[in-house]
Design a binder for these strands. Structure first.
Length: 323
DNA sequence: TACTCAATAT
DNA sequence: GATATTGAGT
């Protein structure tokens, strides 16, 4: 525990860790020696020819192609992810089997996303269940999406589950969102208390987030809203491009796309021992670089086809997670 | 069941 | 110290 590991894209990197062909046991070769099999009364596996192996490979490949799309739990309004690029960073945690089950119980969804395309058998799925959910790091891109969804909903309707659904980020849990929302609300509250003074340097991620206007924040101190929240039209208050930071009361109306246009995101980036944004900052050395970059990112015209989400910081690389 | 808040862990 | 996760209360 404690060491930083980043899984960047890199098929090459994945491949680097793979055994060479010489190291692999041919699939056509039985894994259990005959003596061992008889000793344990295991009926010997049928001998496989190369042809059998090839046939099996073809079968696997075709099933993967055919079944690549998986449906989203949020229904037909939300497109499932089919890609693999993401800048979400997860701080990995050690598996720690046998530790507090409460701590491992939430690990599954992210594990699904982390090895989403690989979970092709029950043993893998079962193994995933024993793994601890990696620590989610809210990258600027992820946070941006969060803010956009919250802006769309209005803080009144922005409850974790709804946000999670609208964000449509695979592996993102309600708890993740709730936690981030909690922090975000604190930030908003503080900002509105400070009025126009702007975010404090310690706000890091939020510092580059436009302070929502009062209308956005109308029920900040109210209780939980169990409203539907989703289909309430189009008001959005995401930052404008003039100052980089919206002040209270500045409201830039921006049509928010209906849910079907919200492109799903992936959360494949992993890192261990998360220290929040340190993973990000590590690549940018100074926080203000990060802020600048994120601010400019926030100012980009948004392309709801999802293409604009390529403004990823480059330490966050694509993760072509190969099986 | 889901939400918020506070405590705790990393 | 900053951030995410977990647990308790509602």
């Amino acid at each position: 525990m404690g060491e930083e590991v980043k899984i960047d894209d890199g098929v090459a990197e994945w491949e680097m860790g793979l055994p060479s062909l010489d190291d692999l046991t041919p699939l056509s070769q039985s894994l259990i020696p005959a003596e061992l099999a008889s000793a344990f009364k295991i009926s010997p596996e049928p001998t496989r020819t190369t042809l059998d192996v090839n046939r099996a490979s073809q079968s696997t490949l075709s099933s993967l192609r055919g079944g690549a799309a998986h449906s989203s739990a949020t229904g037909s309004n939300f497109k499932p992810f089919s890609g693999h690029v993401d800048d979400h960073v997860m701080a990995d945690a050690e598996p720690e089997e046998g530790s507090d089950p409460k701590k491992s119980r939430r690990m599954d969804p992210v594990d699904d996303l982390a090895i989403d395309n690989c979970a092709d058998d029950q043993s893998t799925a079962a193994a995933n269940k024993t793994l601890k959910r990696p620590r989610l790091v809210w990258t600027p891109t992820l946070h941006k999406r969060f803010v956009e969804v919250v802006a769309h909903l209005g803080l009144k309707n922005a409850v974790p589950k709804t946000i999670m659904q609208l964000m449509n980020v695979e592996g993102l849990t309600r708890e993740n969102v709730a936690s981030h929302l909690q922090k975000y609300r604190l930030y908003v509250k503080r900002m509105q208390g400070l009025s126009n003074e702007g975010p404090s340097p310690s706000d890091h991620l939020f510092a580059s987030t436009p302070v929502p206007p009062q209308s956005f924040n109308e029920s900040l101190s109210g209780g939980p809203s169990h409203g539907n929240g989703i289909a309430n039209g189009s008001h959005s208050t995401v930052g404008n491009g003039s100052s980089g930071t919206n002040h209270v009361g500045m409201q830039i109306p921006m049509p928010y796309p209906p849910p079907p246009q919200i492109m799903p995101m992936h959360m494949m980036g992993m890192a261990t021992h998360g220290h929040g944004f340190h993973g990000y900052e590590a690549a940018h050395t100074h926080t203000h670089h990060y802020q600048q970059q994120y601010s400019s990112m926030m100012q980009q015209p948004r392309d709801w086809s999802g293409n604009k989400y390529n403004g990823y910081p480059h330490h966050v690389t694509q993760n072509n997670n190969k099986c």
